[in-house]
Amino acid sequence: MRLDRRQRSRRRRHSNPDTSAQVAGIDLGSERHWVCAPGLGGGGREVVDFGATTPELVRMAEWLKDRKIESVAMESTGVYWIAPHEVLEKDFEVLLVDTRQLARVPGWNKKTDPDDCEWIQRLHSCGLLNGSFRPQEQVCMLRTLVRNKANLLAESADWVRRMQKSLDQMNVRVHRAVSDPNGVTGMAMVCAIAAGERDAGKLAPLRDRRCRKSQEEIAEQLSEHWREDHLFSLRQSLQMYDAIAERMTA
Results as ranks from 00 to 15, higher is better:
Leu222Met: 13
Ser237Gly: 08
Arg122Trp: 10
Arg100Asp: 06
Phe232Glu: 09
Pro84Glu: 10
Ala73Phe: 04
Tyr241Ser: 05
His225Asp: 10
Phe92Trp: 02
Arg143Ser: 03
Glu246Cys: 12
Trp63Val: 05
Arg32Gln: 08
Gln169Ile: 06
Leu96Pro: 00
Ser76Glu: 00
Asn130Phe: 12
Arg6Leu: 11
Gln121Lys: 10
Asn151Phe: 00
Leu28Trp: 07
Arg161Pro: 00
Lys165Tyr: 09
Trp81Arg: 00
Asn151Pro: 00
Ser166Glu: 01
Val35Asp: 01
Met163Glu: 03
Asp49Leu: 06
Ala103Asp: 00
Gly43Lys: 11
Leu128Trp: 14
Val178Cys: 07
Thr144Met: 08
Arg247Trp: 15
Cys36Val: 02
Ala52Tyr: 01
Glu118Tyr: 05
Lys111Leu: 08
Asp115His: 15
Ala150His: 09
Arg207Gly: 02
Leu153Asp: 10
Arg122Val: 09
Val190Tyr: 03
Leu129Tyr: 07
Leu238Gly: 13
Cys117Glu: 00
Gly51Leu: 02
Gly39His: 04
Glu228Arg: 15
Met60Ser: 03
Ala194Cys: 12
Val23Tyr: 15
Trp108Asn: 15
Gly29Arg: 14
Gln236Gly: 07
Pro135Leu: 11
Trp159Ala: 11
Gln221Ile: 03
Asp91Phe: 02
Val58His: 15
Gln164Asn: 11
Asp242Ile: 04
Tyr80Asp: 01
Leu142His: 06
Cys36Gln: 07
Ser15Asp: 06
Trp63Cys: 00
Gln101Asn: 12
Gln215Gly: 13
Leu64Pro: 02
Met187Leu: 13
Gln7Gly: 10
Ser179Ala: 13
Ala103Asn: 05
Leu40Ile: 03
Arg207Phe: 07
Leu102Lys: 07
Val94Pro: 03
Pro38Ala: 01
Arg13Pro: 03
Asp115Cys: 14
Val58Phe: 11
Arg198Lys: 13
Arg45Met: 06
Asp113Tyr: 13
Ser156Leu: 14
Gly44Lys: 00
Asp199Met: 02
Gly196Leu: 07
Thr249Lys: 15
Arg209Val: 01
Glu217Asn: 14
Leu142Thr: 03
Trp63Pro: 00
Met170Gly: 11
Met187Trp: 01
Phe92Pro: 01
Ser132His: 09
Pro181His: 13
Met248Trp: 02
Gln239Thr: 06
Ser15Pro: 03
Asp113Ser: 15
Lys202Ala: 07
Lys165Leu: 09
Val146Phe: 04
His124Arg: 08
Cys191Tyr: 13
Gly183Lys: 07
Val105Gly: 10
Leu231Met: 13
Arg100Val: 06
Gly186His: 07
Glu75Asp: 12
Met141Thr: 03
Asp199Ser: 15
Met189Ile: 14
Cys191Ala: 12
Asp168Gln: 14
Asn109Asp: 15
Glu75Thr: 12
Arg143Phe: 04
His33Glu: 03
Ala150Gly: 06
Ala195Lys: 10
Ile120Arg: 14
Ala200His: 07
Asp168Leu: 12
Thr185Ser: 15
Met170Gln: 12
Arg210Ile: 01
Met141Cys: 04
Gly42Ala: 04
Leu3Met: 05
Asp229Trp: 04
Trp159Gln: 14
Ser15Ala: 13
